[in-house]
Design a protein around this nucleic acid. Structure first.
Lengths: 205, 205
DNA sequence: TAAGTGTCCGAACGGTCGTGCTACTTTAGC
DNA sequence: GCTAAAGTAGCACGACCGTTCGGACACTTA
């Protein structure tokens, strides 16, 4: 059974659009995404691009899904190759900071931006964003729990995950808004204070 | 010198508009602010409202200023009445969490939302937002430094301020996006671990 | 070969956006 | 009271928005 060339072509265009959409949305927000603007940038017709997705909301949802794939490829997936427990938790944090630092999305972490944008606007878009956030937090929490269970760490996994999540997001936010590498340095020191063995070092410089 | 009734009237209208604008912007963003929409909500003419501010960007800047006044009134100003050092630092953190928890702005912390919105869009609006963020972080850092200088705390003030700033923002973000009071509880535990005397309690539950 | 389906297009829809222009009312200072 | 200025309103503009429609074309299937 041969592949339908039309569908293949459509999928190619769709992913072309989505690759541009995640970049645009990371800077101007998901609400700032414009079908007309996207079409102009990619030299497609507005109506053709519209037909590919059906509605602006569906385009936003597809953009979120694409961004999640990119996020996972840079953060979660490579961490799965590392030993469970503290090593994996360290890898998650470090991959996450690197992903932000390298500006995989031009506006910084995609999900940080769109979370703040849609956190108070009920709807399918917000639900999808919230689900991605919860999934990543759960990943941090499970890795933390494994590290505690293995005796690598003495802490409450839920609180530790919350703290790591908070510090990473703050590093991304401060670096994008104010520039410079200092936020990432501070976040790495804060991470180290929580993740480096002897918990006697927790508050020091 | 008598008060100019026209100017007084204008100022009254301006502040009426701005009070509504900060609420709208905390939910839909500063870019989502609409002169027409604002005029309709307040039953003013679009052109009249426009003339009060001169341009949309000026309206956005005025909105930021108004929001900063409200933020200060709830967080920084009452903390000034508390003894410098650790007590004031604790007050800053607690006031901040309460300000977010009480939804002084319906979309959660105004500056968290608009910071994420404009962090990658150069211009006067972004500069104004960044200045407010820097000022608040400086307030935290100075209070932390005073606490350290007074011997209340043993920590690096810069790192401590970064951590407190990160934890508070995370509590606001998680609570607005996912609902519930759990984020605030976690943040308070994390604050306590850093601010409650015996730094031996830093990592425990 | 004929029917059906998916991509992509141009053109147009109604609506909203920010922004000018003009005119009217209200008030301050002479 | 008269004049000048500030607040406010009505109206129209050009641009852009998401969306709809009808059709051209490529491709698969019967």
């Amino acid at each position: 059974m041969p592949v339908d060339g039309r569908i293949a072509r459509g999928n190619a265009t769709r992913s072309l659009v989505l690759r541009r959409a995640v970049d645009d949305a990371s800077v101007h927000g998901l609400a700032g995404l414009s079908i007309g603007g996207l079409a102009a940038e990619l030299e497609l017709s507005k109506s053709g691009l519209f037909a590919l997705f059906g509605s602006k909301e569906d385009l936003q949802l597809a953009t979120i899904e694409t961004a999640q794939g990119i996020f996972r490829a840079h953060v979660g997936t490579p961490a799965q190759a590392v030993a469970a427990g503290l090593p994996r938790l360290r890898a998650l944090c470090e991959n996450w900071l690197t992903y932000s630092e390298k500006r995989i999305f031009p506006g910084g972490c995609f999900f940080f931006n769109v979370s703040a944008e849609f956190d108070a606007r009920p709807g399918r878009v917000r639900d999808a964003i919230a689900a991605v956030g919860r999934a990543f937090l759960a990943e941090l929490r499970e890795s933390a729990a494994e590290a505690v269970a293995a005796g690598h760490l003495d802490a409450d996994p839920e609180l530790l995950a919350f703290e790591l999540h908070a510090l990473g997001r703050a590093a991304n936010a401060d670096a994008v808004l104010h520039g410079g590498a200092e936020p990432y340095r501070l976040a790495r020191r804060a991470f180290a204070a929580r993740l480096d063995q002897g918990q006697s070092t927790c508050g020091d410089r």
